[in-house]
Amino acid sequence: MAGIVGYGAFIPRHRIRSEEIARQWGKDAAAIKRGLVLEEKSVPGIDEDTITISVEAARDAVERAGIDPIKIGAVYIGSESHPYAVKPSGTVVVDALGIGPEVHVADFEFACKAGTEAMFVALGLVESGRVEYALAIGADTSQGAPNDALEFSASAGGAAYIFGKRDLLVDVLETYSYTSDTPDFWRREGRFYPRHGGRFTGEPAYFRHVTSATRGILKKTGMNPEDFKYAVFHMPNGKFPQQAAKRLGFTKEQMETGLVVVKMGNTYSGSSPTGLAAILDVADPGDKILLTSFGSGAGSDSFVLQATELLPQRRTTGRKVWSMLDTPLRYVTYGEYAKLREKIILND
């Protein structure tokens, strides 16, 4: 059986509060925080992007795995903010970590699902025996247009997972995917900000795919919500995953460890993978974990996972998700945020 042999996460240290964004646009901060359940979000530094976040997250993953990085035969990075439109992010990551050059590398894009997509493919390659280890990363410095509801959530961070067949920290018991053509959120080539269908992103998109994938994997495994210690769903805001959980029969207690969105925001491709990392930071051997991602356009990947005896001793190194979230360096003003996110038109 194949599973996770190493994991890591990285979240930039700057934050902006929902109140600060609301103040900028004359919006009611209390209503926004209530409606979206978002207190603050991470903001990438001017020197951070999907590649740097990927390298930092993957470095912790390699260290926890305790493997020679040269043995990693595939590297996939899922993101919708690859720094280059043409030229892979993954090549920088492999050279930075001492992986390759005998390695298969690809950048993935499937809106917010690209991270679990990379995990799905990495797992499959390891299971098939084609590669010994495969590294999958979900990371983003998410874009959200100024004065759009997305601006309260679009944030930066990511998580990395190494899959292998020996010395597993987490068993992957099952996977399931659910996909349809649903144009709820998109960004056309050459455009800076994504657009979305407003309330159309809810029922026909997020909820349909998340609940269908989750019900699908429960049926496939014959498991019930109460069989899980933890669950994490894609977190476009703080409200959607909790509503989905309620509909599916998951409790607040199962959700709270992985519900990083309230403090982190939506790291798009990094969202549910980072929620999973937060769970792995504390899970006990034997705990079962449900992960269901969502990517607009639209699709969901579900994973049923189980922590092994090895997990507690391997996670003693590396950065923990909640400690990164609980110790921000600095809260930025909207003006600083606009500068850091390159929302100001400059001269050449």
Binding site: D47, E48, T52, E56, R59, P83, A96, D348
Partner: peptide, 11 residues
């Protein structure tokens, strides 16, 4: 020491 973007050659 952390991995960062050091510079960009223009836009």
């Amino acid at each position: 020491l952390e991995f960062r973007r050091i510079r960009a050659e223009g836009n």
